[in-house]
Design a protein around this nucleic acid. Sequence first.
DNA 1: TATTAAATGATAGTAATACTATTATAAATA
DNA 2: TATTTATAATAGTATTACTATCATTTAATA
Lengths: 225, 225
Amino acid sequence: MKLQLQMKMNEALYLRNPESSELGKSILKHSVQLIYKAGFEAFTFKKLAEEIGTTEAGIYRYFENKHKLLVYLTAWYWGWLEFQISFQTNNIEDPVVKLKRIIMLLASAVEDDQQTNHIDESLLHQIVIAEGSKAYLTKQVGEDNKQHFFKPYKELCAVISRVISECSPSYKYPKSLASTIVEMAHFQTFFMNNLPSLTDFSTKKEESEIISFLNDLVFTSLMKS
Amino acid sequence: MKLQLQMKMNEALYLRNPESSELGKSILKHSVQLIYKAGFEAFTFKKLAEEIGTTEAGIYRYFENKHKLLVYLTAWYWGWLEFQISFQTNNIEDPVVKLKRIIMLLASAVEDDQQTNHIDESLLHQIVIAEGSKAYLTKQVGEDNKQHFFKPYKELCAVISRVISECSPSYKYPKSLASTIVEMAHFQTFFMNNLPSLTDFSTKKEESEIISFLNDLVFTSLMKS
DNA sequence: TATTAAATGATAGTAATACTATTATAAATA
DNA sequence: TATTTATAATAGTATTACTATCATTTAATA
């Protein structure tokens, strides 16, 4: 039995629900591939339409513009990741073990999980590393936030900060530490691959080194307080 | 006596040196103001030209495109900040005191220093917080890096990582910790102002709280190892 | 089965963006 | 005075980021 889990996405992110039709799913699938390949700046709805074999206007029926599409994809990713984390850490009692597992999941390359056929999570992970911050580093953060576009990201951080507080109830910065490890899991990966002198990770490009760094960072902070 | 210190910028960043003429300086000054006001996405050379009272073609004689201009401005900022740090921590023997001072400088709002009349460092600091990552989160990072566009940023991180190693020679991740505190000084500020639930900082929006967070993060890591 | 609605395809058009090129003029310098 | 240098003025192109219209296919429903 193969069960499909559908994420309930914020309806303000799209004009027509892309999960509800073939063209919609094709838009999601190919936008991930094209943004991955060309980068978000060079990505246009025209090119996407050509790739899919539809027209620009066709894409615009689903997404207002490419910024909304990026926000949609990143929100999808954070929702998906939160589910992965809740699934993989379910029934783990010890919050320390739990937090270690979370750090591992944050900093590990994702393998495409087949469950959700139309989105390649592995590519999407790469996109979120390289383009994800652009979803909120804009002049419209405020309005976008009011419309709850970043809820999945904030929820993930909230989940992590709760585990941090379980590990160490007296620690004073659980939320900031949570957003720090989420961001750094990505940034250190990006730096390792592109600006390696900003990291201590060898040319082997081992993600295990990033995991060790984050574990060290987090647990020395928590053990002390 | 008022001494002007000129930063030597990477020549591949511009077509004509903007520091060498009035129009050039005006471009720098007004681009900082306009990017701050409109955000980098909405910023165009046309609008900039109108603001300055010159033509689009006039801007293009100085900068190839707006990406190069952003890279120029961020590089300028990191160079300027490294100088501020080296100046303000000069003659401090104790590396712990030094590192604390650095963290303070990283996370404090900048006040325009008058020394360099044409660039408003305070606005530029805000720009680097909100747009700075876009300088390297692109498909061309590799090439840009080969042309040493990110040297000032990497040098600043290198300086900080050396102080970290002085504080604790056995600490295994001085470079990653350095890039982490630089990035987090900015991201936590951005989050505090725009997505506050990602932080533990009160509505007072006190930068001193961010400084405390970073100090805690860094010094528990270093004391332990 | 016929009717109708929903989704898509095809085409066209507009305003703004991101440039390049050319020519004229003013100011600085040799 | 001749000449280089910087800038202004104007024009033009390809691409981007959309919006609008209408025809056609597909699917749902009466």
